[in-house]
Design a protein around this nucleic acid. Structure first.
Lengths: 207, 207
DNA sequence: TAGATTGTTAATCGATTAACAATC
DNA sequence: TAGATTGTTAATCGATTAACAATC
């Protein structure tokens, strides 16, 4: 499928998904774009437009069936793939991500950990043994890893990205504050935490 | 100052800042929008437009003085304020943020930690003692905390946000996957990690 | 001077918002 | 039927890109 879907729309889908799960837990079976918008501070028009990009999920005069819409969004986001994750760099942040419970509830599972430091290799985090980076290719193949998460210092990030690509991962989630170069066939999402914090600082400094 | 500056522009400033620091370390004193754009995969026109929003920092025919531009961006972002941070929720993620070295290099310092769990209260993380949430107001005042970081489960996040606002923080950085309601005078930035990971999943699922 | 490069104005592109016909 | 609500088209708004005069 090759439509032109904006990143803004894609980034709102997880918010819809998250809210539909909460609504479902409240035993509400139908929701309007109005109510969904109210819960997220997003206009109902925006929500209908976003959803209409992917199909007709609602019923005129009624609203959206919560369970159906949730499943549809899950499929649009590709969550049914139950992606397998590897974390490279088991420092504080990598270790925290290895323990992050919200991933599991979205169908992701952490199946491999890597670190360069021989003092960390061999230890276990959340029940997962830490491997040496030098064994990356073998372990990633054996564990059928889909996504590589980079939580190493910026200086090492490009070399880790290269190794991950060579090992055959299908996507990269990068926490290192540096621009990575990867083949266009490998989707890359950057999660530079200092961007958000700096933006907050900016807003706090205004008037 | 009350111009209408887009969030997209604000989010690019930390990238410029980060790159200027690297460039400065390479002992390069002048850089063109072209070279800066090449290093970040951003068009030079975009960079000039972003910077022109805040003033005239370059010299026609020459480029930008790296050190000056870096300082100007730092001031625009309000980093000279050297904000003081408190982290509420010392689980894996909160603990990782308490140890995150990149914050210090941007002028932020973590000065207080809070947790609800009495087994965690009294322990120290990165040399900082964990306080009970019930002492939030007193400690935040005493430590002159500017920014509250929320790393508690979603169910507790709104109540923590309310307490932080009541205690007088000037801004909130929220990692809990839930929409928070805060007064318009308190800037709020959401850092929902599952958004980025879900977006990656989406892109990996396309064709 | 000739070449390089900014700052700014104009043109284009894309995303959001508004309006409303369709229909439950 | 009357009221509610979607899906979609049209209008608006805002951000990016292109062009170029100014000038180092």
């Amino acid at each position: 499928m090759k439509k032109n879907i904006s990143q803004a729309t894609i980034d709102r889908l997880p918010l819809y998904f998250r809210t539909l799960r909460l609504v479902e837990d409240e035993d509400i079976s139908i929701i309007s774009s109005d109510e969904l918008g109210r819960r997220l501070d997003i206009t109902p028009e925006q929500i209908r437009k976003d959803l209409a990009t992917f199909g007709q999920f609602g019923r005129k005069g009624i609203g959206y069936y919560v369970h159906d819409l949730k499943d549809n969004i899950s499929n649009i986001l590709g969550l049914q793939n139950r992606w397998r994750l590897a974390i490279v760099g088991v420092g504080h942040l990598g270790g925290a991500l290895a323990n992050y419970v919200n991933f599991a509830s979205l169908g992701f599972s952490v199946v491999a950990l890597f670190d360069r430091n021989s003092r960390v290799v061999g230890t276990a985090v959340n029940g997962i043994r830490v491997n040496s980076i030098s064994h990356m290719k073998r372990v990633i193949t054996a564990q059928a890893v889909d996504i590589g998460i980079i939580t190493v210092p910026a200086e090492e990030a490009q070399s880790v990205a290269d190794s991950l690509v060579a090992a055959g991962v299908k996507g990269i989630w990068n926490f290192a504050p540096i621009k990575l170069t990867v083949p266009p066939t490998v989707p890359l999402v950057n999660e530079d935490l200092s961007v958000g914090l700096s933006a907050l600082s900016y807003h706090m400094s205004q008037e």
